[in-house]
Amino acid sequence: MLANFNFRIIFEYLPLFLNGLKFTFLISLVALALALVTGIIACACRISGLKFLKYPVIAYIEVIRSTPLLVQIYFLYFGLPTLGIRVPEIQTGIIALMLNSGAYIAEIIRAGISSVDQGQIEAGQSSGLNYFQRMRFIILPQALGVTVPPLLGQAIVLVKDTALLSLISVMELTRSGQTMTSERFMPSEAFLTVAFFYMCIYFCLKALADWSQKKLIFREAY
């Protein structure tokens, strides 16, 4: 099986793969940054206690979590034109990823904030610190350590999610594999190479996540 593996073909198509890889990186980075902003805003609304902010955000999060990402992508890809909004596929894809990961990030941040011991908050209250001061000095610094590892986990998920954009013709890494397969009909060389690249990204991100897990956690000492 492996004796027939044609490495030369892979080198011939390397520019295509690298171009796809570049787009995968770019899309992942932009979508992740936007998703972080979305997640922070959504989380702030969620914990605000104001009903008109809280309930729409909860609905948004539950809808995202209960429906497949591919359906969300198709919803935007096929739906936006019917509203007269013409957006290039790559941007449609980024918006879908932003909304999807944003919901999960909102929940990750919320979990991080609730993980800070209630006693800390009471100590802050007792010295007269107001809500924003408690957030800034006591809660957020400690929540950070608990939040970063799952955020990196979500980053890994997001990179894999970008592969679905190949189905709406975005020229990222998976689509490079599809293109090579349709041109040369050598699916083994095409998709195993693609899989290899994804594994590299995965191992880098995973190493980062494991490292951050060790470094960033503060615990109350008794």
Partner: peptide, 16 residues
């Protein structure tokens, strides 16, 4: 609260 100091059983010092 500025005029009252409160000491907790579990101390609750800020670990960071």
């Amino acid at each position: 609260r500025e005029e009252i100091g409160f000491i907790f059983q579990q101390f609750h010092l800020y670990p960071h």
